[in-house]
Design a protein around this nucleic acid. Structure first.
Lengths: 346, 346
DNA sequence: CTGGTTGCTGATAGCGGTATCTTCCAATCA
DNA sequence: TGATTGGAAGATACCGCTATCAGCAACCAG
């Protein structure tokens, strides 16, 4: 095993080491390394050469403490295990690129007490801003965020009261829109399949909006099926089989996400069910994976990348509208009927 | 818009504020908040109450500078857009839970210069350790890592020279093993479908191992097909169609990942191809999504979670073997023939 | 030639904590 | 009873960097 360098032997380098190596003051080195303009080209070259030769890496901890500036943006999401949040993170990452700001990610696994912990840890690094999913937080979490004195952007959801800024879609409205489309297509005996996660508020709100709209049309959910954990695609199959066995007269299945929807779709096709004739299907999220399915599942795009980008721009102080705080951006999800909802006039 | 609290009015709290609020020294407050034992219960209560009442959040920047201790672990991965790295991150996150260490993630998009940037930024926070994917890094990156004087764990791959510790599988060997299984099953006209990413070294090594093993058995790849970007599932379909149209006599398709493999599988089934009789298929990664496919794609589990957990334990100083640095853990991927490779003796 | 400006560099004083040493005082013991 | 001990709290000195201001030469207009 070739161990790199005896870590004990070599104290880590400081500005002083660089300054001594090139015969200028620490202050001048600091200026050069921060790309400040008021240094003569000659000195600049000398310093850069020395820093490079030594392999100096600045200590941001000291820098941040002295300057009271931290170029970190805290990003807190509930999960990485479906594709929705990674895409949001991608949007944030790209939007922050070139601003000098750096995202730092934390994951809560949909647990409020974990969110509280993650936030506490993150806030104690005094980040430039916070982007976090959802509007539902524990009281201590809200208190921390409110008193942090930095931009807070709650994302994904706009149905509720924001702490500061918010960028997202209305999941309640999304649920209603899907219900409307389904009813318009003539389906009447509708089942719902979803996760059993009390803290997935967005899924809950979609379902609420969905059932409200059904109700207003004089309909009720005919059956529901819940799952927790495991391969979503497989669960989608199993749940579909189970719900159809229990309630064969269903003519539509609304899935709380595309992955279980895709599983259900595959099961239906394999079992010779006429989709969308006998049975209509719809999911939620507009996942890329749907592009590869035999037929396109109806879905609703959640504007994930866009949400990430906009949120990042707010934190970076580049919000489109020039508003300082308290921005509220509601995006409109695009309904995609795909091939699994019959066209109304057909 | 209800803005939280006038940020300008309220200076952020310091230890001094808490100490003045409860009439003890800053030092004592510091002790209490760090759970040090040498404080009387009475004082402790008093301090905690004051801190809570004020909503004090410690400043880790100052703390880290003073104590020369940072509880951050840098984790650098190339991508979040397929499920493999999120799973690794999950493993790391869980293993670190309870150690007082916190992971901080960075993404490179498979670009070496970006890796260099991310590492520079991250190292300047003086983390406790670094976990990063792969063994191939730019010279400056290697230099930074070598001179950081902290545990460095390179993950996913063991085929190459490590900087310090390494946890992963041999992708070369994985490629060979899959080739062996395919040859043993009697397939002879083998095609390869994969990404066109020069910096995905693990995919490259798998292919190298694969072709080597073919070569030793007197075989060569009969055709290859590459893609870049887009929905992997859809690309899998399209590439499969393309390669079979071009080279219909192929009797096996080896995909560089499960997602395109799954797409290919769906296409084959829809087009009435006898899998695994006429055409065998195999992917790589052991993704959960395969569980939901009509039939199980042959694959090889990459031990992702396990790799994350072990790497985290090394950084946390809990490596199973008690070795301080330079650990080398090679895991053995499990070959799963699924339903898309015919059983040799059948 | 003077006073002011400009351009570059250095000295000094913190940023908000923690390590370490010291002090204080009550409890314990010969 | 005085010496000793040990637990609890405080005083002090930094950690490595940056903000700020001071210094000083070169330059320019008046």
């Amino acid at each position: 095993m070739t161990r790199p360098i005896p870590p004990s032997t070599r104290r880590t380098l400081t500005l002083r080491d660089v300054s001594e190596a090139c015969g200028v003051s620490e202050m001048t080195v600091s200026r050069v390394l921060r790309n400040r303009t008021d240094v003569s080209p000659a000195t600049r070259e000398k310093v850069l050469a020395a820093a490079k030769a030594l392999g100096y890496v600045p200590n941001k901890i000291a820098g941040a403490l002295a300057s009271q500036r931290v170029n970190l943006v805290t990003v807190v999401v509930p999960s990485l295990s479906n594709m929705v949040f990674p895409e949001v993170l991608g949007g944030i990452s790209d939007a922050l690129d070139g601003t000098g700001l750096q995202p730092v990610f934390g994951v809560t696994n949909y647990r409020p007490e974990r969110e509280e912990n993650v936030l506490y840890e993150m806030l104690s690094w005094r980040p430039t801003g916070v982007i976090l999913a959802g509007l539902e937080h524990s009281d201590p979490s809200r208190a921390m965020l409110e008193s942090a004195g930095i931009p807070i952007v709650e994302i994904m959801d706009v149905d509720g009261e924001a702490i500061d800024s918010v960028v997202g879609i209305s999941h309640r409205r999304a649920g209603r829109a899907m219900a409307a489309a389904i009813i318009a297509a003539g389906y009447r005996r509708i089942g719902f399949l979803g996760t059993k996660m009390p803290d997935d508020h967005r899924a809950r709100k979609r379902l609420e909006g969905f059932t409200e709209a059904l109700h207003e049309a004089g309909l009720e959910l005919a059956d529901t099926e819940y799952y927790a954990g495991g391969s979503a695609l497989l669960k989608g199959r199993q749940m579909t089989e189970a719900i159809l066995k229990r309630t064969p007269e269903l003519d539509f299945l609304y899935y709380s996400n595309d992955m279980i929807g895709a599983g259900g779709l595959l099961w239906c096709l394999e079992n010779g069910i006429d989709v969308p004739g006998t049975l209509g299907l719809a999911g939620f999220n507009g996942l890329e994976i749907l592009d590869g399915m035999p037929i396109r599942l109806a879905t609703m795009d959640a504007c994930r990348r866009d949400i990430g980008e906009r949120a990042a721009r707010i934190v970076a102080g580049m919000g489109d509208d020039g508003v300082i705080g308290g921005a509220r951006i509601e995006l409109t999800p695009r309904l995609d009927l795909g091939d699994t909802i019959r066209t109304p006039d057909r």
